[in-house]
């Protein structure tokens, strides 16, 4: 589950580093022809840096993303739903493994990525800093947050970096179960008792703003997008993905007789959705650590890290030579 590579793009000192113009031209022509880049191919420094940042954030989002949903594992309504939720949470952690591998092929060791997650140096999708207050919140996450993630991931699976594409193809296949599972949970509540409907509506109201934030700031606020699109690192603009999400899911929300907490929301004559811009200052504030659950998410991650240390050390072979995975 992941929104977009919108977080913490601070160009390094070498952003103005001059690439060999001939190699750069060959590289760009290759991408233009629709060919993929493999780990050992030549690539510009900036391409590598942006991909590491993006894939790493995606991987972190998968492991942290398992936490809000995991909240309801012990109290899932019924054994079948409990098994399904456990399976979904396990999938998310599996997705993190696939993505860390893809990022490692670009030269950043997994140890460093996990250290950067705990220290706060690298970020994860903002939406997971919000709490899942009720079972209905877990339904909204599995339905709509996974829906948003699929839109982003399907777009990125057509990108230029082969290991990331391969990981995403597999991830998208697995996510389709999550989406259907979440939709069924939401429909069950929506077609249930008055109390259940109310619970679902309240959860939807809570998740709407984080969901609008999910795809990242409006295109007019985003930087560097042009080059990343040319290199097929970024495959769709934030606003385009947001529009696609609204087109696909607002009708499904309305069909259930639920409302979206935005009075301005409507599709205009040109077929574009109009909506109230969510508070982007809140978005920045939460990314920078001041959200309702940031502290808890990192503390839980650190607990697993610290309390698992003795197992790692017992198994460690000091002689082991660490290399990047093949692909």
């Amino acid at each position: 589950m992941y929104g977009n590579a919108y977080i913490g793009d601070t160009p390094k000192n070498d952003a103005h580093f001059q690439e060999d113009p001939q190699k750069l031209a060959e590289f760009e022509a290759k991408i233009e022809r629709g060919e993929k880049i493999e780990p050992h191919d030549w690539m510009p420094r900036e391409y590598r840096r942006q991909l590491v940042r993006m894939i790493e954030q995606h991987a972190h989002s998968e492991i942290i993303g398992a936490l809000p949903e995991g909240t309801w594992v012990t109290r899932a309504p019924g054994f079948r739903r409990k098994l399904a939720l456990l399976a979904k949470v396990q999938d998310e952690v599996g997705h993190a493994q696939l993505l860390y591998n893809a990022a490692e092929t670009l030269g950043k060791p997994r140890e460093e990525m996990l250290n950067d997650l705990i220290s706060g140096k690298s970020k994860y999708s903002n939406i997971f800093n919000y709490p899942a207050l009720t079972w209905a919140d877990s339904a909204v996450i599995a339905w709509l947050v996974d829906a948003g993630a699929i839109i982003n991931q399907v777009a990125n699976s057509k990108g230029s970096y082969a290991p990331y594409c391969r990981a995403l193809e597999r991830i998208c296949q697995e996510e389709s179960f999550h989406l259907k599972y979440g939709y069924e949970n939401a429909v069950t509540l929506a077609t249930g008792t008055a109390k259940q409907r109310e619970m679902l509506q309240e959860a939807l109201n809570r998740w709407w703003i984080p969901m609008m934030h999910f795809f990242g700031p409006p295109d007019k606020m985003s930087v560097h997008t042009e080059k990343l699109m040319k290199w097929k690192v970024k495959m769709a603009s934030n606003d385009d993905m947001r529009q696609q999400f609204l087109t696909m899911y607002v009708p499904k929300i309305w069909e259930l007789g639920l409302t979206v907490p935005d009075e301005k929301l409507r599709k205009n004559e040109a077929g574009k959705w109009e909506y109230t811009e969510p508070d982007w200052a809140e978005f920045v504030r939460v990314i920078n650590g001041d959200g309702p659950c940031n502290k808890e998410r990192i503390a839980v991650r650190n607990m697993a890290h610290e309390r698992g240390a003795w197992v790692r050390r017992a198994l460690m072979k000091p002689s082991a030579k660490v290399v990047a995975p093949l692909s």
Binding site: I118, K317, A320
Partner: peptide
């Protein structure tokens, strides 16, 4: 604990691939 210490992972603590 709410505030925590963290020992960073060392070079090959997550093993080989």
């Amino acid at each position: 604990p709410e505030s925590h210490d963290s020992t960073p992972l060392s070079g090959n603590e997550l093993f080989e691939t």
